[in-house]
């Protein structure tokens, strides 16, 4: 059986087989601006860029939903906003209210954060009820559920993904961008394995260039959440003029390397670091970066 770690070089190699145009990639991008200090000018630019690059979606805080709906009127661009963001610790009622209001304001997708504490308590009914409430409040609009995979072990990611599907949400999504780590190949692969083909898997957090984007798609993502959409599409031009087949050492792309003692549950940190002990790629592990 192939381990999640072994999926890293596989996905890295698979990127070479992908035959995607810049338009194909743009069609998967949730063009995201969830910074706490961006003002009207920047949100307008976000919408302008979405129109110019034909991104699938813009993803903003609830406060900006109406504004974006107005800016994007007459286009096919989807407007996503967030609920229970970024910690997922609001009560179910509040998350549902956020979702309902967002849809009223013009949102057509809702990205909610799962209640990770309840999940860690193994209170799976609460987790599912929390999700279901948002799905119902979203009135048919697709709901993506952020797991914040940096708080979870591989097994927990699989379990959480299954719960999301059982709760009839539409996407399982990796990260908020505010957590301990962004999207990684093993996590996205596990999410895809859990939910199966034809279901939504959104990779988000730390997708900074076209190689990152291609790796996430190769791992199983069909949606990319990133604030670097313009850079990704622009820089993808360079891929047309030469090969960029420099294989990465698996460690640089591995969640075990990204595990952060200060930002994640200590048990989860230890779990990831211990994966290195039996890793077939341990010889590649280098001290840098």
């Amino acid at each position: 059986m192939v381990t999640p770690m072994e999926r890293i070089p596989q996905a890295d190699r698979k990127t070479k087989e992908l035959d995607l145009s810049p338009e194909d990639i743009a069609g998967m991008v949730d063009h995201t601006q969830l910074s706490p200090y961006k003002a009207t000018k920047q949100i307008k630019e976000l919408c302008d860029e979405a129109k110019a690059y034909n991104f699938y979606c813009v993803c903003v805080h609830p406060f900006w939903t109406k504004f974006c709906a107005n800016e994007l009127k007459g286009t096919d661009i989807v407007i996503a906003t967030v609920a229970g963001f970024p910690l997922g610790q609001s009560t179910t009622e509040i998350k549902a209210k956020e979702a309902r209001k967002a849809v009223e304001d013009g949102a057509t997708e809702v990205d909610m954060v799962m209640n990770v504490s309840a999940f860690k308590d193994k209170n799976y009914d609460l987790v599912k009820d929390d999700i279901r409430a948002v799905v119902e409040a979203s009135n048919g609009c697709p709901v993506k559920v952020i797991l914040e995979t940096g708080f979870m072990t591989y097994e927990e990611i699989t379990q959480a993904s299954l719960l999301v599907k059982e709760a009839r949400a539409h996407f399982v999504k990796s990260s908020t961008g505010f957590g301990p780590m962004g999207a990684t190949i093993p996590h996205i692969w596990l999410m895809r394995e859990a939910v199966g083909e034809g279901y939504g898997v959104k990779a988000s957090g730390g997708i900074n260039d076209f190689k990152d984007a291609l790796r996430m798609i190769a791992a199983g993502a069909n949606r990319l959440g990133t604030s670097a959409g313009v850079k990704i599409i622009d820089s993808y031009t360079w891929a047309r003029y030469t090969d960029w087949d420099v294989e990465e050492i698996p460690c640089r792309l591995c969640p075990s390397r990204k595990a952060n003692f200060d930002k994640m549950p200590k048990g989860t940190f230890q779990y990831y670091k211990m994966k290195c002990v039996d890793c077939p790629f341990r010889e590649f592990n280098r001290f840098y970066e």
Binding site: D209, F210, D212, W238, T242, D243, V246, E247, R252, Y288
Partner: peptide, 21 residues
């Protein structure tokens, strides 16, 4: 710097064509 995309700086393999470009 990761512009246009981050590649392994320690690897010699795969660099030639990028340098030429």
């Amino acid at each position: 710097l990761g512009v246009p995309a981050l590649i392994d700086r320690f690897k010699a393999e795969g660099k030639v064509k990028i340098v030429k470009l």
